[in-house]
């Protein structure tokens, strides 16, 4: 049986029926989005691995006990579990994520402005390097929406459901997140040009 041709709902059905390979395909298909979403929230690879594993243990337990709601989409459901585990972790730790810049983030040229001056290139590179740190400076609700939207590929409705807010609130948080990032980048770029 070729599992890659099956949609998520079919894979879940097959897994519940006893086909372990169906879970392997679901993992293969969605692990990047789920893991990256967790990692961006906790900013610690080892912790992200633990939470990712715990997330799928809950997934497995729910599916095998017959408690899965068949009307829901698989990925948003898993991301909701992961999101709740991250919240549980921070509640236990009673801390907010620490901003770090020491895990191998290199300067690079992704926009390829080949005709720009050396000075402009340095300004742009420094500005974009700071984007990663700036994301961590966002208020947690805004960062959460940005992460779910970009890395989790979730719709605003799905984000609203996971975070228990209205669609308008989720959308508003995304707008604020982008606006804050834009302001931070502009401020940083301006300060670099003035020095």
């Amino acid at each position: 049986m070729i599992f890659q041709d099956k949609n998520d709902h079919e894979l879940v059905e097959l897994y519940i029926a006893g086909k372990e390979a169906a879970l392997a395909e679901l993992l293969r298909r969605h692990k990047t989005k789920i893991y990256t979403s967790i990692y961006m929230l906790v900013k610690d690879e080892f912790l992200a691995e633990d939470i990712f594993q715990d997330t799928f243990i809950k997934v497995i337990n729910t599916l095998k006990s017959g408690r899965y709601n068949e009307e829901g989409k698989f990925l948003p459901w898993v991301l909701r579990i992961a999101h709740n585990l991250v919240i549980d972790f921070f509640r236990k730790e009673k801390r907010t994520p620490v901003i770090t810049n020491g895990d191998g983030f290199d300067i690079f040229d992704v926009l390829g402005f080949y005709d720009e001056s050396i000075e402009d290139k340095m300004v742009r590179e420094q500005t974009h390097k700071d984007l990663k740190a700036m994301i961590q400076l966002l208020p947690s609700e805004q960062k959460e929406v940005l992460i779910m939207r970009h890395y989790g590929d979730m719709s605003f409705k799905e984000i609203a459901d996971v975070t228990n807010v209205s669609i308008n609130t989720a959308l508003g948080r995304m707008r604020y997140a982008l606006n804050n990032l834009r302001k931070m980048l502009q401020t940083k770029e301006l300060s670099l040009k003035l020095t």
Binding site: E45, L111, K132, Y151
Partner: peptide, 11 residues
């Protein structure tokens, strides 16, 4: 988006 995509990780 290209910058954000640099953060994509694998378990």
């Amino acid at each position: 988006k290209p910058e954000l995509n640099k953060e994509i990780r694998e378990p």
